[in-house]
Design a protein around this nucleic acid. Structure first.
Lengths: 234, 234
DNA sequence: GACTCAATAATGTATATACATTAATTGAAG
DNA sequence: CTTCAATTAATGTATATACATTATTGAGTC
């Protein structure tokens, strides 16, 4: 029994339950605040607090004078959580190890500029391999925009995975993911120890802070032994 | 300028901005509520409302007597939005078309029971193909637990994609996704019109309502012309 | 120093009240 | 019947206040 016994929490749970049970369907109007006041014998502020939480959560919508209705579920809000590779390996009970294959600070090349959407400047380019239990788990290539994150130039990414460091130290406002499947080429064949033409999964991620792009990364996983799995709530 | 001019919204934006700018780092204590009252010249209820919203959003944590601190970013909250296939195709400016290849109501087989975690009962099994602009876009296989969603038995899924119908009509409390890459077999070769051994992406999804599994689906996309793309905020 | 316990200071919850804002409804004028 | 303005009923925001809850602080004791 960890649930709060606060009135607002109770109202919230009750309304959520009614919606989940299908008693109140999308588009239905739920009771007015003054009716809920009477039902629960509490003040409007308390009812309002419960409703506002459900509105922020996207379960309800309200319009002045018209009342509050159950939202139509928005498909695109189904969200897939993408874990940190080091945590993920640890979660499998395997020993994690990072191999830094390349680390270079350079003036942005044409491709760097395209991926980070910058006019000029320096980037930190990294290439590494994530191992789990002595076996290759994923390949990662990463660009960090040093104009946005100058302190990254001083970090030893042979010790801490770049993704873990960035997510722990740099707040971000927006990101974009791109997941694709492709047939392994010579590079993956050698580095991941898979057969020619085997299906691989590529996960690319761009991360912003405000208008500025912080980092770009492309991670490659062997398709036959990797699944991107995530559990989530709406 | 769509942002609210309410005081609580302003406080919320200001705090968020301070965190994003790095002025307040994870673990730092932000000003006490009574200090923010003084800063903004408003009541504690108003300050509290702003803070509560940020706490629910996971940006802050608070402890009685100790104050409110900036949360340590939780990596696993990076979330990938997965769009509805029909909307996705429409968003590409292509004409969407659904081909229902198979529709069967049957007593759950051993595999159905495993995928839906049921002891017995009837399931609705569907197999369909999603086309975009006259070309195969994805294959879908779906199981619907008729004990959980009896009304699905009466729906004409040749007209409305099963995923669109379910998400619009059945609220869910939890879901799990699994994304894998694999080499195309004979089935994909014919149905998607791709070459033997080409990399494909499979997206599986289980959806719960409470303890009950509502549906299982497996969608297959051709790897060379499909990317799962999503933009999101933390 | 180590333990106990009371005082204190922060957040958590709830109330009664007030006025603002919005949109549905009503009623009057054409 | 249509149009337009006034009324009204709902939510949105904000305040001042009160008491509950809890972790820290600090004083007193062994």
């Amino acid at each position: 029994m960890k649930q709060s016994s606060a009135i607002h929490a109770q109202i919230r749970r009750d309304i959520e339950a009614q919606i989940m049970a299908g008693d109140w369907k999308p588009g239905d109007r739920i009771p007015y605040e003054h009716q809920l006041m009477a039902t629960y014998g509490c003040s409007r502020m308390t009812v309002n607090r419960a409703l506002r939480a459900l509105i922020e959560a996207g379960l309800l919508e309200s319009r002045r004078r018209a009342g509050t209705i159950v939202s139509h579920p928005r498909v695109q809000r189904a969200a897939l959580e993408i874990p940190d590779i080091r945590d993920e390996v640890a979660g499998l009970g395997e020993t994690y190890r990072l191999h830094l294959d390349r680390r270079e600070i350079r003036a942005a090349t044409a491709e760097d500029r395209r991926l980070l959407q910058i006019e000029e400047g320096e980037v930190l380019a990294l290439e590494c391999r994530h191992d789990a239990g002595g076996r290759a788990y994923a390949l990662e290539r990463r660009l960090i925009n040093l104009a946005a994150v100058p302190e990254a130039a001083a970090i030893d990414f042979a010790a801490e995975p770049p993704g873990s460091w960035l997510l722990a130290h740099v707040p971000w406002t927006e990101a974009e993911h791109r997941i694709t499947a492709f047939n392994a080429g010579a590079k993956e064949l050698v580095a991941l120890g898979i057969s020619a033409g085997a299906a691989c999964m590529a996960l690319e991620r761009w991360t912003w802070r405000g208008d500025e792009r912080i980092t770009y990364t492309r991670q490659v996983y062997p398709g036959d032994r990797y699944a991107l799995v995530a559990r989530f709530r709406p």
